[in-house]
């Protein structure tokens, strides 16, 4: 190297692929023009490859067994302890979101039925149940026809809900808060919509 750029640091960074895209481009341009730097790069590559052979320390054959033998003397982690309190809080919030959706939906349904019927509690429940069953039947039939097997769909849905809960639990508190607010406002809007509709009819 005759004092001009690139220096050894840049060659090192280039070999490791940690140069910025701009620097990498100008380095490549320079390497085409400069034989000395191309040679220096080759030397750097060989040097780094020599260092990479340091990884060739091989543990003894029984290493895993030796560790596991000692691990076995320690108590097994219990599922109850598996989730530290922070994670537990996350799962708690995630569960609250799911509950808010379910309960919110139920409240909306009952409110809607109540204003519509303005009737005895027994009749209210009967209408609620018949509506739920009717809706479920329609949904079930339609979907089972669509997919051939409603249980497969339910299983998939359950898995999806669990994955969503896990995802919610792993996301930050901002995301969880947003989800909660979104759920509450959606439920509120939906309730208002149903009530308005029923008032008009």
């Amino acid at each position: 190297m005759n004092g001009h750029a690139p220096n050894n640091d840049m060659l090192s960074a280039y070999v490791d692929g940690v140069l910025s895209p701009d620097a990498e481009r100008s380095m490549e341009q320079h390497l085409v023009e400069c034989e000395a730097c191309a040679q220096a790069l080759e030397a750097e590559r060989q040097f780094v490859a020599q260092l990479d052979r340091l990884a060739e320390v091989t543990p003894p054959d029984d290493f895993v067994n030796a560790v596991m033998g000692r691990v076995a003397q320690h108590p097994v982690h219990q599922p109850g302890n598996a989730i530290p309190w922070r994670a537990a809080m996350r799962y708690g919030v995630a569960a609250a979101v799911v509950l808010a959706v379910l309960l919110g939906g139920g409240v909306t349904w009952v409110l809607g039925t109540g204003t519509l019927q303005n009737a005895e509690p027994g009749a209210l429940v009967a209408v609620g149940i018949s509506r739920t069953v009717g809706l479920a039947t329609v949904a079930f039939t339609g979907l089972s026809e669509l997919l051939g097997n409603a249980f497969v769909l339910l299983e998939q849905a359950a898995k999806m809900v669990w994955q969503l809960t896990k995802l919610t639990a792993r996301s930050g508190w901002m995301v969880q808060l947003t989800l909660l607010l979104l759920t509450v406002s959606l439920n509120y809007a939906f309730t208002r919509m149903v009530l308005n509709y029923q008032r008009r009819h």
């Binding site: 060739e56 320390v57 290493f63 691990v71 097994v76």
Partner: peptide, 22 residues
């Protein structure tokens, strides 16, 4: 492993023994 499957820890030991010993 945290859910109680202690033996599965061997997979992690197997995976990283070379790097850690090196």
């Amino acid at each position: 492993v945290l859910a109680g499957e202690q033996h599965r820890y061997a997979e992690l030991v197997q995976r990283y023994q070379g790097k850690i010993v090196s």
